[in-house]
Amino acid sequence: MSAAKRAIRDVYGDTLAQLGRENENIVALDADVGSSSKSIVFGKEFPNRYFNVGIAEANMVAMAAGLATAGKIPFANTFAAFMVLRAGDPVRSLIAYTKLNVKLAGTYAGLSDSYDGASHHAIADIAFMRSLPNMTVISISDPVEAELATRAAAEFKGPLYLRLSRAEVPVVLDKASYDFKIGKGVTLVDGADLTIVATGYMLIKALEAAELLSAKGIKARVVNIHTIKPIDRELLIACAKETGAIVTAEEHNVYGGLGSAVAEVLSTSCPVPIEFVGIEDVFAESGDYEKLLAKYGLSAANIVARAQKVLKRK
């Protein structure tokens, strides 16, 4: 594991600008958080293709829909909480309903905007987005994945939600060998005792947990599910069959997110014990990001505890 860290949003901003250089049909929109989402990097280089609509998220997303009907590839940017809550209507009624080719980039997802408090945390966005027909949902773990996923989003045809963190995250994936394909989960650590299925920043916690478990003689498999919808059913079923127990880990409410998606697949196809690591249906609070994650159970230690628990249920 490399110690190098980069902010996910910086990688996203740089990648978006690079995509802008490669394809003139790419346009970007923001709702007055361009300096936070880093869409401003694109905006500075391509002012004519950048629409900052002010603090008006619904208008931004509906405008993106209009641009997409004419063949543009819009990236709409705002905080994940507001992408869902303020712009939810055009996301559903225009983009998902009519399969418009709009990329919805929700930054500051999970608790990553930690000091701003629960008003700015996004813990229901996966649940909303994956309940919309036609929507593809991608959650980004590390800086390498941020670049590859943003690039894949631009090439993908159709409505797509890109879940981005504000946080500085260590590089854990090897850019040269990492194979990012929308809809395909990736096994990063092999193991036969149980599978930890993680998404977003919780992948890093899952990798730490696997090391801690290994020291206790428990061999955990670690799978990165970056595409929460459509989810990689084959891989999940194989993991359930081969390891017999699952722990899911996500920076989202345990209701409706990755854990629910995994349970939906396995309960009908290969029922095995599952434990869920996520926000336990509460509003969190302001504070230091890592301390906040730890307090609300989004830690390697809690994944280890849940792993030990799920093994007893095997």
Binding site: V61, A62, A65, G66, L67, T69, A70
Partner: peptide, 14 residues
């Protein structure tokens, strides 16, 4: 209410 925003997007694409 969504039509006007989307219409503006179409106008910007033009």
């Amino acid at each position: 209410g969504l039509g006007l925003s989307a219409g503006l997007g179409m106008a910007m694409a033009a």
